[in-house]
Measured scan of single mutants.
Amino acid sequence: TTLTVNTQTYTFTSEEEAREFARRYGAKTIRKTNGTWEVHG
Rank of each mutant, 00 (worst) to 15 (best):
T1S: 12
T1R: 05
T1M: 12
T1F: 09
T1C: 15
T1W: 06
T2D: 13
T2S: 14
T2E: 13
L3D: 13
L3T: 14
L3H: 14
L3Y: 05
L3Q: 14
L3P: 14
L3V: 12
T4D: 14
V5K: 09
V5H: 14
V5L: 09
N6S: 11
N6Q: 11
N6H: 11
N6E: 12
T7H: 13
T7W: 12
T7I: 12
T7Q: 10
T7D: 09
T7M: 11
Q8H: 13
Q8P: 09
Q8N: 10
Q8K: 11
Q8M: 11
T9L: 10
T9R: 10
T9H: 09
T9V: 15
Y10V: 06
Y10F: 11
T11I: 14
T11N: 05
T11Y: 13
T11C: 15
F12R: 00
T13G: 08
T13V: 07
T13P: 06
S14Q: 03
E15F: 13
E15D: 02
E15Y: 14
E16T: 08
E16H: 09
E17R: 04
E17M: 06
E17A: 09
A18K: 00
R19L: 12
E20V: 04
E20T: 05
E20G: 02
F21K: 01
F21L: 02
F21W: 07
F21M: 03
A22F: 04
A22E: 02
A22D: 01
A22M: 07
A22C: 09
A22L: 04
R23D: 07
R23A: 09
R23Q: 09
R24H: 06
R24L: 10
R24V: 07
R24A: 06
Y25C: 14
Y25H: 11
Y25P: 00
Y25I: 15
G26S: 05
K28R: 08
K28P: 07
K28M: 13
K28L: 12
T29N: 06
T29S: 09
T29W: 14
I30F: 05
I30W: 03
R31M: 10
K32M: 12
K32E: 09
K32D: 03
T33L: 12
T33S: 12
T33C: 15
T33V: 15
T33Q: 10
N34M: 04
N34F: 02
N34S: 05
N34T: 03
G35P: 01
G35W: 02
G35T: 04
T36D: 05
W37N: 00
W37L: 01
E38T: 07
E38Q: 07
E38V: 13
V39I: 04
V39A: 02
H40E: 14
H40W: 12
H40S: 14
H40D: 12
G41D: 07
G41N: 09
G41C: 15
G41I: 15
